[in-house]
Nucleic acid binder design. Structure first.
Length: 419
RNA sequence: GCUGGAAUCGUCUAGUGGCAAUGACAAGAGACUGUAAAUCUCUCGGCUUCGGCCUUCGUAGGUUCGAGUCCUACUUCCAGCA
């Protein structure tokens, strides 16, 4: 069971701590998107240095390569990637629903691998099993993303998401039960061997002696199940329709998951109302993750204000790779000719490795000459910018200065640019 | 010196009588929100009341209704032979 302590509340906003088997996350927090168990162009060491508290990987991509069994063999995502901190996995639904080959049925989704065309299927149960093998601290339920914003389609997708949620909860619970048993074995084993280091896995042979041993998966005999607690978030759907969002929030709360993901959000328009609806219904004492939002600073302020605890988004690193960088005065495209002789750092108020050491002119040069370091430094900066902005939001909530911080930040950030 | 061949928009390149002229790169700008994203889009001779107008394919002439394309001379470069 995931522990979540709330330290302070202001309206729907809250400051808290999520306790996972791999460490704590002080919330609100921005979680780096590490789709294939890596944040593109950044090392885990750089991620730690820039202040990230957690990473979120993607089940779809990890199933295709290197496979969930292999990650399990290496002790799970944190161990395999040497992140050694809190981890999340997305169910893979988001990717699979975007594949042209996706065929949706009640049982699950059949699709073809985008890499080699292999015919594959993901069901709520298989997603749960793969996420257990990958072994992130927090898993997302396998949800159905509607393709259209049409009310009936959205409702149908939501209802299926709920039926699938029941199956996710059942499968997750079954897998959870195994680990509880394993934990008992492990503590006895620790006593016997007086092992000092952390014991995180045990052979399936031990499990085989138990009556609850899961349905015979012969190829799993040699595998080492991960013996630490892993949690499940239910995912709230319903698109832009507040009645559906409310219904989905009630349903998700009713299955008593460890936390909640809020999915299917693609723009900040209407997000405040939607979150207000959802987060008024969801139980207060469980963490909430806003799936995929956080490219625009306003997303983070609105999210935190309306009760979001964690964010993830590919935007900061993707934009960085393409030369768009955050500054407190709005975005810049460092490839623009006007930066050729700009001796200022990307952002004078930023304390990331890039801004402390390098000029805009240097970064401009690296981008124009297509050097790998361009993407590295830009990603360090953008990721740090967003991570630290959410950290500052947390601090401002603690200090009761959130409103002022929000107004000052957003006025300045959006004043000269688009909106 | 002789004999061939070649000169096109920053660079390379397509084009053998209807052409402001192909493609790539470079350049300029924009997009990106649970990452099939080191990706994608647009602009790229000058003006424009968006119908056009003007100036362009080494230089100068010529043939033709019309020439980047054919002819002549010149200039430069390349290859081979001396």
């Amino acid at each position: 069971m995931l522990k979540f302590d709330i330290k302070k509340k202001t309206g729907l906003a809250r400051v808290g701590t999520i306790h996972t088997a791999h460490g704590d996350i002080k919330t609100p927090a921005f979680i780096g998107a590490a789709t294939r168990a890596t944040v593109k162009s950044l090392t885990m060491s750089e991620m730690r240095t820039l202040g990230s508290q957690g990473i979120l990987a993607n089940t779809y991509h990890l199933i295709l390569a290197p496979g969930s069994d292999l990650i399990q063999e290496f002790g799970g995502l944190a161990e395999f990637s040497s992140w050694h901190g809190p981890t999340f996995t997305d169910s893979g639904g988001f990717q699979i629903f975007s594949l042209p080959s996706a065929k949706i049925a009640e049982e699950g989704v059949k699709f073809k691998s985008h890499i080699n065309g292999a015919k594959l299927e993901m069901t709520p149960e298989s997603s749960m099993r793969d996420q257990w093998k990958i072994g992130a601290d927090i898993h997302m339920a396998f949800d159905h993303l509607a393709k259209s914003e049409n009310y009936d389609d959205m409702k149908e997708a939501m209802l299926r998401t709920h039926r699938w949620l029941d199956r996710c909860v059942a499968e997750h619970g079954r897998l959870s039960g195994q680990v509880a048993l394993l934990e008992g074995d492990l503590s006895r084993q620790r006593e016997r061997t007086k092992a000092t280091g952390p014991v995180t896995s045990i052979s399936w042979d031990a499990l085989a002696k138990r009556s609850e041993r899961p349905g015979a998966r012969s190829n799993a005999q040699a595998k080492m199940p991960l013996a630490y607690s892993q949690s499940l978030y239910a995912v709230v759907q319903g698109g832009t329709f507040l009645d559906l969002r409310a219904e989905s929030a009630r349903y998700c709360a009713s299955v008593n998951p460890d936390g909640f993901g809020i999915g299917g959000v693609f723009t900040a328009d209407g997000m405040a109302e939607m979150l207000e609806t959802v987060n008024t219904i969801l139980p207060e004492n469980k963490p909430r993750h806003l799936l995929g939002m956080g490219q625009e600073p306003r997303d983070l302020f609105i999210g935190a204000e309306y009760g979001i605890d964690t964010f993830d988004c590919v935007g900061p690193t993707r934009m960085a790779r393409n030369g768009t960088l955050y500054t407190h005065d709005g975005r810049i495209n460092i490839k623009n000719a006007k930066f050729t002789r700009d001796s200022a750092p990307v952002d004078a108020e930023c304390d990331c490795e890039c801004c402390k050491n390098h000029t805009r002119a240097y970064l401009h040069h690296l981008f124009k000459t297509d050097e790998i370091t361009a993407k590295v430094l830009a990603s360090i900066h953008n990721e740090h910018f967003i991570v630290s902005t959410v950290d500052n939001i947390r601090q401002s909530l603690m200090d009761d200065t959130f409103e002022k911080y929000k107004r000052t930040f957003l006025d300045r950030y959006y004043k000269s640019s688009n909106s």
